[in-house]
């Protein structure tokens, strides 16, 4: 058997297929295929671009920080004004959440009654806002809900809006709440008129307490505390260190301050009218009563020194 020579195989291969006749419409089919490919190219590219854009958007939302999950509502407008000064700027009332972003903390201090009251605002960031955190409008809370954040000064009902409309009708302290525009009143005797008060969150429960000056004696100033109850009523507190006393004489002195959810009450005695032994007791407001926290501390205060006077009220705007 002789091996198959290349030229032999060439001839056999050509003979096997040379009589094949392709279909006559081959060219038309190719042209149709090219047109079909062109028609699909643009939509295919567009679809690919859309898919890429969707993936990019998904990736963006997947990695973007989420700053809050609670439902927020727009703040109700504040209608009241005290004195000639306007209240805190609108932006602060509508754009500053209690804790998420820097909050403007207006504190109310009224010495000349409603007509002479002034409203001051100080930018007091409570917690630095994360970069890119959205603006959050104040949350309107139900009266029986439990706010979880510290109320800013001036905010009685914890809705993030200053409650400016506070007055005294001779027998009762009357407050109009900003979150529902309803009026609440509590009977309170001996309130000094014109009103002198501040609203600050003593217990960090998200609602501000009202510290209102009541009649004092012997050159001292006293303050009662009124708080908004979960049921929406106002209640004057009475136990514990209340009333809070501020003032000094040559033999004794008293003062208080509040910070960190505690009220520090100071009382001092002096033999010479210059050096006082000052005892400081911390109180925590829980419900409607104050309870002492920790041990009392005693320090010495010399009136001739430059140390801060312990016999003052440093709470809210007092």
């Amino acid at each position: 058997m002789s091996p198959l020579r290349p030229e032999e195989l060439q001839a056999l291969l050509h003979a096997a297929v040379d009589d094949l006749r392709p279909a006559p419409d081959g060219y038309e089919r190719i042209r149709a295929g090219i047109d079909r490919r062109r028609r699909w190219r643009v939509p295919a590219y567009a679809a690919g671009g859309a898919v890429l854009a969707a993936l990019a958007a998904l990736a963006f939302f997947a990695i973007s920080p989420r700053s809050h999950t609670e439902v927020v509502e727009p703040a109700s407008p504040v209608t009241g004004q005290l004195g000639s000064g306007a209240l805190a700027p609108t932006a602060s009332r509508t754009a500053s959440p209690p804790v998420i972003g820097p909050a403007l903390s207006p504190s109310l201090s009224s010495k000349g009654g409603p007509t002479g009251a002034t409203a001051t605002g100080s930018a007091t960031p409570s917690t630095p806002a994360p970069a890119g955190s959205p603006t959050v409008t104040p949350t309107r809370r139900a009266e029986n809900s439990s706010p979880a954040t510290v109320a800013k000064d001036g905010d009685i009902d914890g809705d993030g809006v200053v409650d400016p409309d506070i007055s005294y009708n001779g027998t009762a302290l009357v407050v109009t709440l900003s979150h529902n525009h309803q009026t609440r009143a509590v009977t309170l005797a001996g309130v000094v008129t014109p009103l002198h008060y501040t609203v600050t969150d003593l217990d960090d429960d998200g609602r501000g307490e009202i510290l209102v000056e009541v009649s004092g004696a012997g050159g001292v100033t006293t303050y009662d505390v009124v708080r908004l109850q979960p049921d929406g009523s106002l209640r004057a507190l009475s136990k514990g260190p209340l009333p809070l006393v501020v003032g000094a004489s040559s033999s004794s002195g008293a003062g208080f301050s509040c910070s960190g959810g505690l009220v520090q009450v100071r009382s001092g005695t002096s033999d010479d009218g210059t050096t006082y032994q000052v005892t400081t007791t911390s109180w925590r407001l829980s419900g409607v009563t104050f309870a002492p926290v920790g041990k009392a501390t005693t320090t010495s205060y010399d009136t001739t020194s430059s140390a801060a006077d312990p016999f003052t009220a440093r709470c809210g705007t007092l």
Partner: peptide, 12 residues
């Protein structure tokens, strides 16, 4: 034929 036509379309 399909294979050859597809080849022409791809090269085009």
């Amino acid at each position: 034929e399909e294979v050859v036509q597809d080849a022409y379309i791809r090269v085009h």
